[in-house]
Design a protein around this nucleic acid. Structure first.
Lengths: 192, 192
DNA sequence: CCTCAAGGAGTGAATATTCATTCCGGAAGG
DNA sequence: CCTTCCGGAATGAATATTCACTCCTTGAGG
């Protein structure tokens, strides 16, 4: 039987919207509950506390992003094409779901994200990262600059972050043409 | 007359350290006061409220950074050299004062910073920005890619941000050699 | 079919905590 | 004394979290 309303996902959606727009501290549980059309206590039936709600939401978003990235990924193409594809795809995903970007940004710039980032760099996270793979292969094949993998990553993704921000506040418009130019520029940065 | 202890700067220093390490919400006024060796009420003799303390601190840091960047800036050199100099100098400054980096990052990722950023992009801020000048000239002289100024900026500074982060958590070590490699990579990204 | 009791989802007022800010008594210095 | 500067307890607002209670649904028994 199809439930017409799933309170848990109502809560998740409300939390996503509020936190993405106003930050963790601009999103009191009471407001999340109200926006979800749910009693304040109901949230605690699904999430032990606010922290868990926050990290759970992060995990869900990350799974979606990974899925989107994997879908149509040109495994057989040369490195350059795979890199360009991945960058463009991430741009596209975040442009389609700006709330997801804002949320991930909030999460990343918070104690949660800091420790996650540290663990990830140290390889303590299970999931194989497409981008990291590209950079490592590039190092082996000597088509990329002789810089540490994580540096190559930062060069590509640091740009993406600031650009997405400017796009979301409406200062630039990331259309396909501009995205192509940007991803090519990033490729120039990392290629030998 | 030289005061041996200037409470105002004690407060500023304490706030800088606490906020840089734990964020705005991890730095209660009471704790700032304690760290500064000052009564909680004393802070309010110098700063009307927490918001003002925060923005004031931001202004002071920004002034220092601008000064450091301007000092020794090779005005007469070609664009490429000026760009490399500016990038390296910013890296060096933040490596010397990691707390300043962390603070600026916090500020930037907060309601304060968002509006500041918007104003700056719209040119509503008085100070002429060295980096922006470089990019604009580069566009005129056609030595840079035909991308909007703000995009060129994001490519360079987005990278810098993530890299500084990795440096501060100790995952990479930004020595002079690595910094040179990175700034060259950024130049490759933006040059035609 | 109808009744009704059990179980669990859902609620939101009450509670406990955490802060920013205020305020007043007192120290320091003139 | 008087003025300026401090300190830190007191205050009040904002919040996360709890919990006693109210439905609803379900299905066993008649």
């Amino acid at each position: 039987m199809m439930k017409t309303s799933d309170k848990r996902s109502d809560v998740v959606q409300a939390a996503l919207e509020l936190i993405a727009e106003k930050g963790f501290h601009g999103a009191p549980m009471a407001e999340i509950a109200e926006k979800a059309g749910v009693g304040a206590g109901t949230i605690y039936r699904y999430f032990e506390n606010k922290d868990i709600l926050i990290t759970e939401l992060h995990k869900e978003l990350e799974a979606k992003i990974t899925a989107a990235l994997l879908d149509g990924y040109p495994v057989e193409q040369p490195l350059r094409e795979r890199f360009l594809y991945a960058m463009r795809e991430v741009f596209r995903y975040f442009i389609t779901y700006p709330l997801h970007f804002r949320y991930m940004e909030q999460y990343f710039n918070s104690p949660y994200g800091i420790t996650l980032h540290r663990d990830r760099l140290l390889g303590k996270s299970g999931d194989p990262d497409i981008l990291m793979d590209i950079f490592e292969q590039g190092a082996d094949q000597q088509v990329l600059k002789a810089l540490p993998t994580s540096v190559l990553f930062s060069i590509a993704f640091g740009s993406l972050t600031l650009l997405m921000r400017d796009h979301i506040i409406g200062f630039i418009s990331l259309d396909n043409h501009l995205i192509d130019g940007i991803t090519e520029a990033c490729w120039d940065a990392i290629k030998k």
